[in-house]
Design a protein around this nucleic acid. Structure first.
Lengths: 338, 338
DNA sequence: CTGAAAGCGCTTACAG
DNA sequence: CTGAAAGCGCTTACAG
């Protein structure tokens, strides 16, 4: 059987292609009776309009792009990204948009090349961008390319916002964590953060420092890179310091917290008795660890849904808006229960 | 600046659209000089041919689809899938194919609807299918839809194969695991598998049973569903049995192994001294666990690359072939080191 | 409400 | 090697 087309349907029904098109797309210009006949026939034939023909005539790809740029070694170990992606996909599917996924290493050039290609080929109608950097070149690049985008984890850029994005109150998250540690009696803590080139890390560092200062607590900052080993090394370095040791360590993600835990175990340092631990991301790792690790749950699924919603709105109406994320929640477990 | 088109390039260069097209696509029909001029201009203008126009005239979408059907709760906790996807994407990108991703719950109807939609709209040129089921309806469905596909983890269907797919020698994997446990002195073991509706689980169950029988070992089979809790419950049930208890448990994936480990811990049963543990999937969880867990490393990245390669070959040449996966490797850790 | 026609931006026989 | 033209399968003003 040859592939059915809109012309075929029109002929079968004895009407014009235009009427079929109007009927399918819910446009005015056809009687209800005709519309029903068209829809019924399409259903009966299991027929859908060609995506590429539609894309060409509408000048709309019907797809949204996401570049996941992650260290190959970390891929799949960060549940946060997958949950985020799942949230995104849910909303896109509801909006009849496909998700085009590209995975590249931590290589800005490849991410950039992908956007240029997608824009040039008009392969996607917009993109979702993650992990805002200091002096991030991507917003300017995407603007130049005329590619609509939503930046997930954007900085506040004033009112009206410079571009669409989701914002997280990292200061509030920092306060939640610091308060928890302060209540548990800690006065000297360390903060093992991700790379400071990420804007959200900078904000977290400042948030922790300020909140701790308000309580007269000492904070030792340590910049790392989210990897398991980095967390391990951080703890080795921190505990080897000649000064009075810290009694709690806050890690920028779950992997580093796991690495830190392994380091403590190796050193024979008890957790939480000697050193307490908090992770800035919750995950199964934190639940399964021994001791289980207190963690900030950030609802990645919801975040993905919100971000995708912003992009669909931007594509439909051109509305640029910033939306703040729901508050994170601290899940208290054994690692700070001392 | 209005969007450049092939007609625009042709006019600028004073040649026909056809020549530009031939030049861009490496077709014969243009002189080398002309070809260079075209390519140089395209590069200078940062221009790419429209994906949808190209798709329409070639009757080829330039994309491959993947439906990830996973329990929302498990999403992101199974590193296997992400690594597989990364492998797939790498090969697709090299072949200039986009990856279209759809995530649905464990709902066969939604997966089916997605394939029908994709086929009807000709939105993708082919799909990669995972987790072969007993009486799997998908091969027949995709055949009926005229949608090329590769089944990752396919059964042997004879020579020539009934469809393209990758096969894994689960019997060999089972043998590897059983031999390891036998060498360590175990004579009574349990096998906590995933659902038997998955063909690969059926093959594993048989593989374990047969190899164990060859050594006169006793195997207690327990069917579960890959979830953390299922592993936990399995151990509770197994150790509550009135008979002589097993001394080792093989789990169908890393999550269940973690659940099992937690159960042992809760019961005060020592691992590996009282009960040893093996996971049929390796992951960070296994590395981080306490004790670290012996696991079968299955190279999901390589598997993804092979599967994607098969699909590209099928699309290019129509060649239907089955390829067997590289052998798995047992990573021995503390959980069986007793 | 309906039909004939142009247009979206490519590819590809076909004639020169 | 090059050019004019048809075709891919839709959408959308425009006339009737």
């Amino acid at each position: 059987m040859a592939k059915e087309t809109i012309a075929g349907l029109a002929k079968r029904l004895g009407i014009s292609k235009a009427s079929v098109s109007y009927a399918l797309n819910g446009q005015p210009g056809v009687s209800e009776v005709t519309r029903r006949r068209v829809l019924d026939l399409a259903e009966e034939l299991d027929w859908y309009p060609s995506a590429s023909a539609r894309a060409l005539s509408r000048s709309r790809a019907g797809a949204v792009g996401v570049v996941l740029s992650a260290d190959p070694l970390l891929i799949g170990t960060e549940p946060y990204s997958m949950a985020l992606l799942a949230g995104i996909e849910t909303v896109l599917a509801e909006g009849d948009m496909a998700l085009m996924l590209r995975m590249v290493g931590r290589d800005p050039a490849q991410e950039r090349a992908t956007y240029e290609r997608w824009a040039g080929e008009r392969k996607v109608d917009g993109v979702l961008v993650f992990d805002h950097l200091l002096d991030d070149p991507r917003p300017a690049l995407l603007d130049r390319l005329g590619m609509p985008f939503v930046l997930h984890g954007a900085p506040e850029t004033g009112v009206p916002p410079a571009f669409s994005g989701t914002t997280t109150d990292h200061a509030a998250d920092a306060a939640t964590i610091v308060e928890h540690l302060h209540d548990a009696g800690h006065r000297r803590i360390a903060h093992v953060s991700g790379p400071h080139r990420f804007v959200h890390e900078e904000e977290r560092v400042r948030g922790v420092r300020e909140r701790a200062a308000a309580h007269g607590m000492v904070v030792v900052q340590y910049e790392a890179d989210y990897a398991l080993l980095a967390g391990h090394d951080a703890v080795m370095t921190l505990l080897r310091a000649r000064e009075e040791p810290v009694t709690a360590v806050v890690f920028g993600n779950d992997l580093m917290a796991m690495g830190g835990l392994l380091a403590l175990r190796g050193l024979g340092v008890r957790c939480p008795d000697d050193v307490a631990i908090v992770s800035w991301d919750d995950s199964l790792h934190c639940r399964l660890a021994s001791p289980s690790v207190t963690a900030l749950s950030r609802n990645p699924g919801t975040q993905g849904r919100v971000a995708a919603g912003l992009l669909l709105a931007l594509l439909d109406t051109g509305l640029v808006q910033a939306e703040s994320m729901p508050h994170s929640e601290l899940v208290v477990r054994s690692s700070t229960a001392g």
